[in-house]
Computed example of a mutant assay.
Amino acid sequence: MSEAVLTSDTNPLTRVKTDNPEKHNSEQFAVNCNVKMFRSDARESLTNEAIDLLQYSLAPATERALRGDLAHFQNWGGTLPATPATVCAYTGDHAGQHAVATIQRRVASISKVHEMAGLPNPCRTEIVKATLRGLRRKHGTVQRQAKPLMRDDLLLVLDSLRESLRDQRDRALLLLGFAGGFRRSELVTLERADIETVRQGLIVTIRRSKTDQEGAGRRIGIPHGRTRHCPVAAVEVWLSASLIDTGPLFRPITRHGHLAANPLTGDAVSVLLRERLSASGIKPEGYSGHSLRAGFATSAAQAGVSTLKIRAMTGHTSDAMLARYVREGELFIGNAAGELL
Score class of each variant (00 low, 15 high):
11 N>I: 08
13 L>D: 12
14 T>C: 08
15 R>G: 15
15 R>K: 15
17 K>S: 15
17 K>F: 15
22 E>R: 14
25 N>Q: 14
27 E>H: 08
28 Q>M: 14
32 N>F: 04
32 N>W: 03
33 C>H: 09
34 N>C: 11
37 M>P: 00
45 S>K: 10
47 T>P: 08
48 N>R: 08
54 L>Q: 04
57 S>A: 14
58 L>S: 10
58 L>R: 07
61 A>G: 00
62 T>N: 09
63 E>C: 10
66 L>E: 11
69 D>N: 10
75 N>K: 14
76 W>N: 13
83 T>A: 07
83 T>E: 14
84 P>I: 11
87 V>Y: 07
88 C>P: 03
90 Y>I: 08
91 T>S: 07
94 H>S: 06
106 R>A: 05
106 R>N: 03
107 V>P: 03
112 K>N: 08
118 G>R: 13
119 L>F: 00
122 P>C: 07
125 T>H: 13
127 I>H: 00
137 R>W: 02
138 K>N: 06
145 Q>A: 03
146 A>F: 09
153 D>Y: 05
155 L>W: 03
160 S>N: 10
161 L>G: 00
163 E>P: 05
164 S>H: 09
175 L>C: 15
177 G>C: 03
179 A>P: 01
179 A>M: 06
180 G>Y: 01
181 G>P: 03
191 E>N: 12
199 R>V: 12
199 R>G: 05
202 L>R: 08
206 I>T: 14
208 R>A: 06
209 S>P: 00
211 T>Q: 03
212 D>K: 02
219 R>P: 02
220 I>F: 05
222 I>E: 04
227 T>M: 02
230 C>E: 06
231 P>H: 07
233 A>V: 13
242 S>R: 06
245 D>A: 01
249 L>F: 05
255 R>S: 06
257 G>M: 08
257 G>P: 09
265 T>E: 10
265 T>C: 11
269 V>R: 01
272 L>Q: 14
282 I>K: 13
296 F>P: 00
300 A>F: 07
302 Q>R: 15
310 I>K: 04
312 A>H: 02
315 G>W: 06
317 T>H: 05
318 S>E: 01
318 S>Q: 04
320 A>W: 06
325 Y>T: 12
328 E>T: 15
329 G>S: 02
329 G>F: 03
335 N>M: 12
337 A>P: 00
339 E>Y: 13
